[in-house]
């Protein structure tokens, strides 16, 4: 008997405020409800500690971070959690800063998630070639199954 059997299972869905993210959240909600697991709705504010900033941005960074967190929480995560809750899904919201795919994996590992889900924005090939995509990155680094919802 492993520890995972005793703790309630968790499913993680990454959202970004887009329609695709919302579709993924709905899909994940169905899975979570059927399996009786908790659904973590995770929003990652893209952030790199190696991005060069101006002195003024640095000075205001703490305030900016708080604002970004609050906006994501109140504008995107909380409404989704509430809507899913109304449909009988046991959902929780999380907002983090960092590299989107890596941070989704980190949250998943911290909470012992068994499944990661994300939406797909259908961005252009050039953009994907240049910057990669969160689903693309996620399937390379995830340690649990990943579902990409179109």
């Amino acid at each position: 008997m492993t520890t995972q059997d005793t703790e309630p299972e968790v499913v993680v869905v990454g959202v970004d405020g887009s329609e695709a993210g919302e579709r993924a959240a709905r899909f994940a909600g169905r899975i979570a409800r059927e399996a009786g697991t908790t659904l973590l709705v995770v929003y990652v504010v893209p952030w790199s500690p190696f991005a060069v900033q101006t002195a003024e941005e640095n000075e205001q960074r703490r305030v900016t971070k708080q604002r970004e967190t609050q906006e994501a929480q109140e504008g995107i995560v909380d409404p989704l959690v509430a809507a899913l809750g109304a449909e009988g899904v046991k959902a929780e919201g999380v907002v983090r800063h960092g590299h989107p795919a890596e941070t989704l994996c980190d949250v998943g590992e911290e909470r012992g998630a068994t499944h990661l889900l994300v939406g797909r924005r259908g961005q252009s090939k050039v953009r994907t070639l240049l910057f990669g995509s969160t689903p693309g990155n996620l399937i390379q680094i995830a340690t649990v199954p990943v579902t990409v919802v179109p």
């Binding site: 504010v45 500690p49 190696f50 060069v52 960074r61 703490r62 971070k65 800063h97």
Partner: peptide, 18 residues
């Protein structure tokens, strides 16, 4: 040495780069 709760704030790299 960056703790998880410090992510999203001004990093040592950023302060140095500025």
């Amino acid at each position: 040495y960056t703790r998880p709760d410090e992510v999203g704030e001004v990093s040592h790299f950023q302060a140095l780069a500025t």
